[in-house]
Design a protein around this nucleic acid. Sequence first.
DNA 1: AACTAATGGGTAATCGATAACCCACAAAGG
DNA 2: CCTTTGTGGGTTATCGATTACCCATTAGTT
Lengths: 331, 331
Amino acid sequence: MTISLSDIAERAGVSVKTVSGALHGGSARMSDETRQKVKAIAEELGYVTNLAARGVRQGWLPLVGVVSDGLITSPFATEIVRGLDGAARSAGMAVFAVNHSSGQSIGSVLDEVQQFRPRAVAYAAMYHKDVDLPPTLAGSVGVMINCREASGRVTSLVPDEEGGAREIVRYLLAAGRRRIAFINLPGILAGSLREKGFRAALEEAGIDPLGVFPAVRRSVYSDRAPSLVSSHVEALLSGQRPDAILCGNDRVAMEVYAALARAGLRIPDDIAVASFDNQVELASRLDPPLTTMALPHRAMGRLAMEILLAGQPEPPHLRQLPFHLVERASV
Amino acid sequence: MTISLSDIAERAGVSVKTVSGALHGGSARMSDETRQKVKAIAEELGYVTNLAARGVRQGWLPLVGVVSDGLITSPFATEIVRGLDGAARSAGMAVFAVNHSSGQSIGSVLDEVQQFRPRAVAYAAMYHKDVDLPPTLAGSVGVMINCREASGRVTSLVPDEEGGAREIVRYLLAAGRRRIAFINLPGILAGSLREKGFRAALEEAGIDPLGVFPAVRRSVYSDRAPSLVSSHVEALLSGQRPDAILCGNDRVAMEVYAALARAGLRIPDDIAVASFDNQVELASRLDPPLTTMALPHRAMGRLAMEILLAGQPEPPHLRQLPFHLVERASV
DNA sequence: AACTAATGGGTAATCGATAACCCACAAAGG
DNA sequence: CCTTTGTGGGTTATCGATTACCCATTAGTT
């Protein structure tokens, strides 16, 4: 029971193509009078463009498909969508997000998206990782976000983990800290890259790292299992006490805060704490508020959309985007 | 350069309609041989259904539009989408999320969605609130999620705040707690409804509440502003000490934990702490893990989709969904 | 053997919007 | 006065899939 162009045409006493031209074809030649009349009638009837119909003709819908590795759930991932959405909107496109649940193959999810004939498709990972796209599918994905595509056939946007780690360590050094420890996230790509940056920054200052510890996350399903973070902190404090602890993420920092509080140490006077993520709700509410490196999620989203919608695609490459230091009171 | 039914038809030496029947019309009468041959060729050519084309004919695309009040950003809101998505998937529908940014009118966002001719549209709020849908638009929204529609023209699904509060208080009472305080969230609908439940549960047990405090959130933009939560806790401790503190959400609970730690009190031995939200990342990581009432977000999403896709719509009504107690170690 | 019924499949219209093409008319130029 | 140019707008084909309708063949009935 929706209104179509022909309803408007009939009512206005003109042809369908004239209505189409008046409403959508910006430059279609036609008297201003006709255009106004058609627009008025369209408005009156409550006409809403049928993009499906246009899509058949055009061969695509004004959609950009975003296949994400798991549901867009984390606060950082949301930032990716925010970046994508902003850029898409200004190009008259809508973002169509589909999650790649663990049971499915990438191919089947991509097919699911392709059914809607999107203008372009991106693949986004929830955390920085390596992703293998089957060779046949490389052509249907325009950009990989927050992950490195192994074959190099697709442009990938990732955070510059190494550079980010270097920057925060330099910042700690500039603040006069010398005995710096790193409670890192184990077993993930970001962790190993950051460790490289961490060591490089200390090396260039001629300082030895006080230690790099893996922080095992406390599983959601075993609430009673103690975290390794506090034992790492205790180990650190029992030796040559550090004057700064760099944490793999804000949640680790939260545990570090608790452990330091138990030991009666003040932040940042006795020990500075810094981390990665800038999970605002958490970082800004800790006491003292946490200094942390914000991931370039929004920028990755925005850039991804620009690449997707650009007429002339660049040759595939890996692009590393810089972190952004958020200074609060913990250093 | 995509494959269409006619490409397959040509290759198979049959008509387009036969191909259509073989691939999509499950019950179309046709020899098994033909069907298999067509399917094989479709597979070989990598055919992907063009939903836009089907959509023109059908009058709608297999999409359910979800207009959300701000970007789907909070972890709880994600649960709504998860619920919607699961139910949509099993009905062969995809969820098309569009965010209602503050600058836009609801009408214009709805039009934006309607352009894609979705099968149904829902409106979801990020936190429990009242929403006024302009009368003209009431017809185009099938369900309101996490908000109450004022006119009563649209079915609304909301958490049963009052019941949830009653339940957690009864739980505290059952655990032997008698002097219970409530550090609530001020100025929001959920807060006032929970307060009713809080008082009701205590009243039915013949116990006076130890106090209800509004907790002013520390603004993200003024990191240095002290939270009122800790002063509330201090006030509580200086009087007749409570044996349980119910918190408006997990973040408030986090601040309460910190304040109690400073006062040298143990949880739950000296004071039990409970709250609302079940923000898993936070609640399960606090020490001790936090007992909290989980919001029925996933259930609201699932039920919303069922209502949207049900053939026979019920008359509009307000439906309150129960919270779910997540027992951890803080009580 | 003729007639009905079922089966397999083709023809062509249709959905709504767009676009290539054509036509009628008026103004301008020679 | 005739031709050119431009302007406003209609005709009709098209995109890809679906569907109402029709036709041919074969199997089953009497």
